[in-house]
Design a protein around this nucleic acid. Structure first.
Length: 372
DNA sequence: ACTTCCTTCCGCCATT
DNA sequence: TTAATGGCGGAAGGAA
């Protein structure tokens, strides 16, 4: 993906579109994840003392009004209005443009509030010059209206997926995933899935450590793998309510060891069949898929923050050998472990300076896929 | 690249 | 009766 390349030290520019009927939560999510203002929570929640400072330097966020003219007052779908500091020119300024969702009412959905042609044109222009376009929830309808989803895979709120597919047959709607990254166009499922997508983008831009620090600060799960069926992940340690959450935490602590369903079921004191069934109910995915996703995440972090040889990373992350790591890593990220690590030194890709972070911007060329 | 072997996943159904 | 559990077996997918 090629953002307009500027000086590596310049913060990534994010514009968030606001318009009448916008869902305030969808608007707040990217504003918070990419947040401009240093957040005290991040500081104490993070192992990185300067995380808040870094985050402020990593993204320059502007919320902008889609309406034409000087009107900066936007009525949200949640019963209050907000004053927005910027206008449409922020879209032309941005490296990443985020389109939040509009309120979902009872089916069939009412006609979505039409955005001014100028706003749609601005989105198209931003996409044409290489900016990353992101939608949250039903914001996918706006992207589709702008023609940006033609021939692409896309996600939206599960309750709106059928309508999106019907209204825009040229869009391949995937109702089962949390988000879709198709080239420079990213769409996420309902409401909170926007958090997952925004964290994913931070992870792509600045590495897993920064994304995890932000996730900790927001007290959300750093990475949910699984489809929309999964709503049950708890960000804080749960009481012993009979869920498999303790076992998942145990799995995370033992990723380097060979973990079979047999072992996991024994840890949870249930049969293999029951374990698999409850795991699927709680996470929306299977034990092995979840395990592989977590192992890939760990491998990414090790590649980013250490100089361990790939074979050692493979062992530490629980892949038997480098071959196993290579296969799963490629499937999940579209690149190889070595290329991922060396992405930091690839010309044209900004590198974060702070050595304590050690996080780097990976080469994302060829990345296209979903997490789920 | 191909085969073989093993684990996992999931529908079905009996049991608790 | 309902709901959760666990065993069985075939299909699918990874690993060797």
């Amino acid at each position: 993906m090629s953002h307009p390349s500027r000086s590596p030290s310049a913060p990534h520019r994010v514009a968030i579109l606001a318009f009448d009927g916008v869902v305030a939560f969808d608007l707040a999510v990217p504003a918070t994840v990419f947040g401009t203002v240093a957040n005290e929570d991040i500081v104490w929640a993070s192992d990185l003392p300067s995380a808040a400072y870094l985050r402020a330097a990593l993204y320059d966020v502007r919320v902008c009004a889609a309406a034409s003219g000087a009107r900066r007052r936007v009525r949200t779908a949640d019963g209050f209005a907000i004053e927005v500091p910027y206008g449409l020119d922020a879209v032309a300024w941005a490296d990443t443009v985020v389109v939040p969702g509009v309120l979902l009412c009872a089916a069939p959905l009412p006609a979505l509030p039409a955005l001014p042609p100028r706003a749609l044109a601005a989105l198209r222009a931003a996409h044409a010059r290489g900016a990353r376009i992101v939608s949250v929830c039903t914001g996918a309808f706006v992207l589709a209206a702008a023609g940006l989803l033609d021939g692409r895979r896309a996600a939206t709120h599960w309750a709106a997926a059928t309508q999106l597919a019907a209204d825009y047959p040229q869009v391949a709607v995937d109702p089962a995933v949390l988000y879709v990254v198709d080239g420079a166009v990213c769409t996420s499922a309902g409401v909170a899935a926007g958090i997952d997508l925004c964290l994913h983008l931070v992870r792509e831009d600045h590495g897993a450590e920064v994304a995890n620090a932000i996730a900790r600060g927001m007290v959300v799960a750093p990475h949910r793998s699984g489809g929309q069926a999964q709503f049950a992940e708890t960000p804080v340690p749960a009481r012993d309510d009979g869920s498999l959450e303790p076992t998942r935490r145990w799995m995370l602590a033992h990723l380097a060891e060979p973990l079979t369903v047999d072992v996991l079921a024994r840890h949870a004191s249930v049969s293999r069949r029951t374990f698999a069934r409850r795991f699927a109910a709680e996470t929306g995915t299977t034990p092995l898929q979840w395990l592989v996703a977590q192992r890939v995440l760990l491998a990414r972090q090790l590649l980013e923050t250490t100089d361990e040889p790939v074979a050692r990373v493979a062992a530490l992350a629980g892949f038997g050998d480098a071959l196993g790591l290579r296969q799963h890593f490629g499937r999940a990220t579209g690149t190889t472990p070595l290329a991922y690590r060396q992405g930091a030194t690839t010309p044209g890709h900004p590198v974060i300076r702070d050595q304590r972070l050690g996080s780097r911007c990976a080469d994302r060329s060829g990345w296209s896929g979903t997490v789920g």
